[in-house]
Simulated scan of single mutants.
Amino acid sequence: MSTRSRAGSWVFLTAVAVAVASALGLGLMQRWDGMLRFAAVTVVLLLTRRAKVPTGFVAAFAVLVLLAMWGSVQHWYAEIPHFDTVVHVLTPGSLAAVSYFLLVDAGLLPDARRPGGSVRGWAPVLWVTLVGSAAAVLWEYYEWVVEQISPQGMLVGYTDTVVDLFAGMCGSLVAGLFVLRWARRHTGS
């Protein structure tokens, strides 16, 4: 195992431990919504690791999901300027990159490391960009539903939505480029 791979594994395992500790700690404080969120994050992280997702991608995903979740639980989105935009740039692309590798592992998408017949050069970039953009759209639907149910719980508007969607699309495009770069460096492995 390479040094880079070991470092990614260490980051991932640390993130899982933090997610478990967060769920337990929030449960002890009787903050049930936060506890359930971190329990769900733990399950998602463990499922991504079972598949053959490269350690760097799964480690980045784990850290970014934890950051997004703590931001939600601790209200950082409202308290820290531009935190929302940063999360919307990083998280959908990370999710889409991991999704790409999960679908390759499941045999539902062709592996970009094996170019030829069914994989066109930039197809992974397009796929990751589209999935990340779709994830950003679904998140904005979630925000709208929450705003309708509890108007004081989440104060968003048209500009916030458009900026979040654009940020998610741009971050997903960059993540797709990272997937393509990784695949080209690992072609044939």
Rank of each mutant, 00 (worst) to 15 (best):
M1A: 14
R4A: 14
R6A: 14
A7L: 14
G8W: 00
G8K: 01
W10L: 15
W10Q: 04
F12K: 01
L13T: 05
A15M: 04
V18F: 11
A19F: 06
A19I: 02
V20H: 13
A21S: 14
A21H: 09
A23D: 04
G25E: 11
L26V: 13
L28A: 14
L28D: 13
D33R: 15
L36H: 15
R37D: 01
R37W: 12
A40V: 02
T42A: 07
V43D: 09
L45N: 00
L45I: 01
L46R: 04
L47W: 15
T48Y: 00
R50D: 03
A51Y: 04
A51I: 02
K52G: 13
T55C: 11
G56N: 10
V58R: 08
V58Y: 02
A59Y: 00
A59E: 01
A62F: 08
A62Y: 06
V63Q: 09
L64F: 08
L66G: 03
L67N: 12
M69T: 15
W70I: 04
G71S: 06
V73E: 12
H75E: 09
W76N: 10
W76F: 13
E79L: 03
E79R: 15
P81C: 01
D84T: 03
D84C: 04
V87Q: 13
L90F: 04
S94P: 08
S94K: 05
L95K: 03
A97H: 07
S99E: 00
S99N: 02
Y100E: 00
Y100W: 10
Y100L: 07
Y100F: 14
L102Q: 03
V104K: 05
A106F: 06
G107Y: 11
G107A: 07
L108Y: 11
L109D: 02
L109T: 00
D111A: 08
A112P: 02
R113G: 14
R113N: 10
R114K: 12
P115A: 15
G117N: 07
S118E: 07
S118C: 06
V119L: 15
P124R: 12
W127E: 01
W127N: 03
W127I: 04
T129P: 01
G132T: 11
A135G: 07
L138N: 06
W139H: 08
W139G: 05
E140V: 04
V145H: 08
V145T: 10
E147C: 11
E147F: 11
I149H: 15
I149T: 12
Q152W: 06
Q152Y: 03
T159F: 13
T161V: 07
V162G: 05
V162I: 10
V163T: 08
V163H: 12
D164S: 09
G168S: 11
G168F: 06
M169Y: 15
S172F: 03
A175C: 04
G176H: 03
L180T: 04
R181K: 10
H186M: 09
H186V: 00
G188F: 03
